[in-house]
Simulated assay, not measured.
Amino acid sequence: MVTDNELSNATPKQRAAVRRTRTVARILDESVRVPGTNFRFGVDPLVGILPVSGDTAVAVLSFYIVFEAVRLGVPPKTLAMMGLNIAADVVVGSIPILGTLFDAVWKANVRNVALLEEQIEKSE
């Protein structure tokens, strides 16, 4: 992820949106560190254990990042890439056991925040 200093030319609205999306991504993808390692996972693989409803609930939360990107005028191509990240997370995440492991490493939300930050950098 980009540091706040690297977004120094971003508007206050953009910086606020990035902070909000980073928070969502951290909760869903990186809120818990595995002791003795640098590996982190979030709520996504835990909620994803629930068949269908878990992955659906996480997908709805994941689309918040896309919503923020739309509000900031991110190009349709990037929005499509964000949607594909979420779709992969939902489809593969729906597979019992393998899906939970995939959710722990794929980190669609962190990827989507990185795409958002990249677009903000380009617009500066």
Results as ranks from 00 to 15, higher is better:
77 K>N: 08
77 K>E: 06
71 R>Y: 15
29 D>N: 06
78 T>K: 07
67 F>E: 12
107 K>L: 04
112 N>M: 08
66 V>C: 05
70 V>H: 03
25 A>W: 03
31 S>H: 13
2 V>G: 05
65 I>E: 01
58 V>A: 05
79 L>G: 02
64 Y>N: 05
75 P>N: 15
119 Q>F: 01
117 E>Q: 11
47 V>F: 04
40 R>K: 14
120 I>K: 00
98 L>S: 14
91 V>P: 00
79 L>K: 02
16 A>E: 04
44 D>C: 05
98 L>V: 14
8 S>W: 07
9 N>Q: 11
9 N>G: 11
75 P>M: 11
21 T>V: 11
83 G>T: 08
86 I>S: 04
44 D>R: 13
23 T>H: 11
48 G>C: 03
15 R>C: 02
15 R>D: 00
90 V>D: 09
108 A>P: 10
102 F>D: 01
59 A>W: 10
118 E>Q: 15
67 F>P: 02
48 G>Q: 02
60 V>L: 08
95 I>E: 04
37 T>R: 01
13 K>E: 00
71 R>K: 15
73 G>S: 07
30 E>L: 11
1 M>R: 08
29 D>S: 01
73 G>P: 01
113 V>M: 07
113 V>Q: 08
17 A>G: 05
61 L>Q: 12
115 L>W: 10
96 P>L: 00
76 P>R: 11
2 V>A: 11
87 A>M: 02
31 S>L: 14
35 P>N: 09
106 W>A: 02
93 G>W: 06
91 V>K: 07
55 D>C: 10
63 F>T: 15
70 V>S: 02
39 F>C: 00
42 G>I: 06
121 E>A: 13
72 L>H: 00
20 R>T: 14
110 V>S: 15
77 K>T: 07
33 R>I: 15
24 V>L: 13
36 G>H: 05
56 T>H: 07
90 V>P: 07
70 V>F: 04
52 V>C: 05
10 A>C: 12
92 V>W: 11
10 A>W: 03
